[in-house]
Design a protein around this nucleic acid. Structure first.
Lengths: 350, 350
DNA sequence: TTGAAAGCGCTAACAT
DNA sequence: ATGTTAGCGCTTTCAA
């Protein structure tokens, strides 16, 4: 076991003071070329790396941002996490990631852990699974955060004093509705999700609000607002819709909007299973533009949130706040429409 | 901005010494109930959280393991990362994750960063994309690591003094070959990958070595060892195989082994495109049991590595080494066969 | 340009 | 059971 090597080791051997070693380490002051070289040589020789812990003890910034996500095995979070990491790296910050797996208990611990690690700020990815977390528990957690640590969330709730960067869900739905409308669809179904998830609720409300103007037949039987956000549940939901319409002797929808891509993909399976073609018989569209949308057959029309700029906004909000720049409390991420085969039979390839 | 609060703040107000506060914080010694309660009350009152930095400066263990992965947007790494996190949490360790995106430069920085953060050990996920990293650069990096920091990798190379936890690739291939053999397949194709990736080379070597005994017709024309590890490349590769066999007037394979699941899924697309049925005309199998194998049509037969125990082994190796338990240098992860529709027409559902 | 010394927040050995 | 004190490894005045 090699002896621990510190700036003192270097200083002693270079016959300078530790302060001088620190100076070359940080380029914080002029050091004579002679001494500098001697020191740099020793640093290499011993493969010395300064302790971020000791440094963090004195310096006001750790250059680390905490990131709380439900589960990076979910592609949505993986994308967002990575784009945050990249955005942070640009400004020489690191990301410290904690997965909560949707468990409130773990989530609370995550905050504690991050605070103990003295992260400079916290990004909280509410996202798809924010239904597990009640507003109440959010409030409790946030109250405990010192105001010096900027907190930014993708969660959608009012009355909480924090930074928010959120998807413009309403606009996202508008894009999809407009697209379907332009393709002459009238009987449009909206599938999946639960109403205690804010993003879901927004979509349903918007659908009811704007659907008529888009020329949709606003029959509530074409809303199947139950289940989760997964592929199998999407399939189940679509199955249920088929059953219901059959019983009520109502015509099939011309288009189906999944509450997210997974739901839409599940719906596709159900439709195919029922012997129908996509998009010839029924168009299908989703949300999120996850990787799989480009893989499934046919490729899925969806709404993209531009994860790169999403992550950038999250990180910038934290750093700007740290730098005293007072970022706006609430920023929106603007979605764009990605048209693929599942809603456009003209499209070549799959 | 609230004043910074430390154990001294608490100590002073509780009229005790900082040491006593430390004692209740760590339960490291007996403290009278009276003082303990007073202290605990103040901790709650101020929402005090002890600095992991200061603590790390004195304590020998930081309880943090560094994890270097190529890209957690790749489901393989996401699964492995999460299982490591879960395994670590059981022993009260955290994971500090860094993505390298296959860039050697970033990878080097990752080591430096982790060392500066004084992680207790480092896990390096070579995995699917370890072709980007030459053995040479590994050696260089590893030489710089102090021997006190256990390093464990999933990479497959000899002559480097480190811990290795790796997939038993040969056994994995054996499982697939046996399965196909038992289903009466003779003309079996092996598709995708590059030979400078060790895991790929192992598979090809094993195939050549054991194929005959399995009753396969060992025609080299049924090996298409080129391309990457992605779905589109898998499709291209299969397309190329079709072309070649047509030109040479050779019969189609009865089964196709993809070098990984993505390649296999791409091959499926090619096969379907050529108007053939899976598995009736051609069986397809892959490796890794990524999530998508359960989604594609038909579901893909594959080999599973049990990410839970994989991660557990990685983490245990680090911690055991830290605890002076001298874990074995090389451990194998045992794969299991997952039979699905793509190689078994008897199977119900998709 | 350089060094001495204090301090960051905590733990642990030693004393009481 | 509790307090005193000396580090841990670094940065940063302040002097020289």
């Amino acid at each position: 076991m090699e002896r621990k090597i510190t700036i003192y080791t270097i200083a002693k051997e270079a016959e300078v003071s530790p302060a001088t070693v620190s100076r070359v380490l940080n380029n914080s002051a002029n050091v004579s070329t002679e001494k500098r070289q001697k020191i740099e040589h020793l640093i290499r020789k011993y493969n010395f790396s300064p302790s971020a812990l000791a440094r963090g003890l004195t310096e006001p910034r750790r250059k680390v941002i905490g990131l709380i996500a439900a589960d990076v095995r979910n592609p949505f979070y993986a994308e967002l996490y990575v784009s945050c990491e990249i955005a942070a790296a640009k400004k020489d910050y690191s990301i410290m990631l904690i997965n909560t797996f949707g468990k409130v208990e773990v989530e609370k611990q995550a905050f504690t852990k991050l605070m103990e690690q003295r992260v400079d700020g916290i990004i909280h990815l509410g996202g798809v699974a924010d239904d597990e977390v009640t507003d109440h528990s959010y409030v409790k957690l946030l109250e405990k955060l010192p105001s010096s640590v900027p907190y930014v969330t993708t969660g959608k709730f009012d009355g909480i004093d924090c930074y928010q960067v959120q998807i413009d869900e309403a606009k996202a739905l508008d894009l999809l509705m407009k697209h379907l409308s332009q393709n002459g669809k009238h009987r449009v179904a909206l599938l999946g999700g639960r109403n205690n998830v804010v993003s879901t609720r927004i979509k349903y409300e918007r659908f009811l609000e704007k659907g008529e103007a888009m020329g949709f037949s606003m029959d509530p039987d074409y809303l199947e607002n139950w289940g989760y956000y997964t592929i199998p549940k999407g399939e189940e939901t679509m199955d249920a819709l088929f059953d219901k319409l059959k019983k009520k002797r109502k015509p099939l929808p011309e288009a189906v909007i999944g509450i997210n891509d997974s739901t839409a993909i599940g719906a596709c399976e159900s439709i195919t299973k029922h012997g129908l073609r996509i998009p010839e018989d029924i168009s299908v569209v989703g949300y999120d533009n996850i990787y799989m949308t480009q893989i499934v057959e046919p490729n899925l029309t969806t709404v993209d949130y531009n994860f790169v700029s999403f992550g950038q906004k999250l990180v910038d909000t934290v750093i700007d706040s740290l730098d005293g720049k007072e970022p706006v409390r609430k920023r929106l991420v603007h979605p764009t429409l990605v048209v693929r085969r599942s809603s456009d039979s003209e499209r070549s390839g799959s």
